[in-house]
Write a protein that binds this DNA or RNA. Structure first.
Lengths: 253, 253
DNA sequence: CCGCGCCTATTTATACTATAATTCGAGACA
DNA sequence: TGTCTCGAATTATAGTATAAATAGGCGCGG
């Protein structure tokens, strides 16, 4: 998990404020974005601060700046979606089943294979961390820990146990996905994380059985996907306003 | 594929130069990095340019800047590894089987599932693009196209056909992985992309058979992984200097 | 001798002013 | 209607200056 440096100085504060406003849809690629000069007026800070903050957001793919055209929000297809800050700002976005589905489809690609690699590569420390995550999940069931933090800890420990830097770097993606997911499961009750299924994954990892770890994790996540797809199909009484993501329906604004 | 904006102005030029130098290991987290003032002297450009470039690299997780400490390269664990520029700069890094393995393990997580999702979600245009990629691969076999570009086109078309923005955004990761991979396969001859196996994936997608598409793509990539692991185990006559990645062996510097 | 507090120096952070460069849009001319 | 030129809009770059953060060294007291 990356140390967040927002808010400690003016530049980072502006990056945070603008980043959230962009990812949450307040500014978008089909609407006018303030010029640098306007940004300085609206948010305070000097021209230098504004330029530096705009450059940081440009580096993350959120903004583009051109002489005479000014500064604009890039289409979402240009955003660096795996950037830890961009991921985190997604938590400011209005809940949407479509977005949750996309996140969970990504988890479906990543996490079974992470479990597979963890079963092959995990060190003793790695396994201890997964075990700790599971224990936290059990504690959370009794109200002694935070459910989503515990779930995140378990899954992130598996990513780390892969020994692969790319998987490790997906920790923020999983964190964000799970925090969005909890909003969904809170809506529909009766769908808590299945601790037994998670424990089975840990057992397969400990047993150094990659294929089994893969299959078990795949099942966990496919179940979530089915649930989400049920929601999208209207089978769970979820309101239509939560079906689509903000860019998919710009006319709805 | 993202439009690359390096070199068109001083700030972007400096970002490109420093980014390459960092990712290729010329600057690293255990060695002194120039102060802003030194950067201005070494690379030219004013203080503003230097600050803006440093901020951009900070936004990508490559650098950190603190009063009095100066500017330093972050440990690789902090780098935004899925950042398109960071990925591209990996091509400047010395070849390493370990790094290729990491990339390919990531592909193993992503691409079978991309094929699965493409089989479920691909539009007619999406399928046409995959088909075009395959045709390019066939053309490349006869010397009428570039092998790696064609391979990239096929795989990226599948990512796009998923309809999922996260998968779509992994195009640079796959591109980089394949460009590194070609260096390996060029070393050991006799291991070109298996066009038939790729065609079978397309057929499964066209047939809307997700599980089959998944399995076929998984096989393609597992085969590459086995080959890489053979190389790592010394079974292919690959020299030891190419086994490890640059950060894994700082003492070897 | 060790720990704590204070001061100084180092480097980034911020502000400001000014000019240069890019590029879009409008108007004029052929 | 198309092309070219010019002016304006906005970013890009340069430079100067001060403020803020903070590391390190030194001195003093226990």
């Amino acid at each position: 998990m990356r140390e967040v440096r927002g808010g400690t100085n003016l530049t980072y504060g502006l990056v945070e404020t603008l980043g959230q406003s962009i990812v949450s849809g307040e500014y978008s690629s089909d609407r006018k974005f303030p010029t640098e000069s306007e940004l300085s007026q609206i948010y305070g800070g000097s021209h230098s601060i504004t330029r530096e903050a705009v450059k940081m957001l440009t580096a993350k793919g959120l903004l583009r700046a051109r002489p005479r055209q000014g500064t604009a929000v890039e289409p979402e297809s240009q955003w660096n979606l795996f950037d830890p800050d961009v991921l985190r700002w997604h938590l400011e976005r209005k809940f949407s089943l479509k977005l949750l589905l996309h996140f969970t489809e990504m988890r479906l690609g990543v996490e079974p294979n992470a479990a597979y690699l963890a079963a092959r590569n995990a060190s003793a420390e790695g396994i201890a961390e997964i075990r700790h995550g599971l224990q936290r999940m059990k504690n959370a069931e009794g109200g002694h820990d935070d459910t989503v933090s515990a779930d995140v800890a378990f899954h992130v420990a598996i990513l780390k146990a892969t020994g692969n830097p790319f998987y490790r770097r997906l920790d923020e993606m999983v964190n964000t996905a799970l925090r969005i997911s909890i909003r969904f499961t809170n809506m529909i009750k009766g769908h808590e994380a299945d601790i037994g299924a998670h424990e089975a994954v840990l057992d397969a990892i400990v047993a150094r059985d990659p294929e089994r770890a893969f299959a078990l994790m795949q099942t966990i996540i496919r179940d979530v996907i089915e649930l989400i797809e049920s929601g999208i199909a209207g089978k769970l009484g979820i309101k239509g306003a939560w079906l689509s993501d903000q860019e998919a329906n710009p006319a709805g604004k």
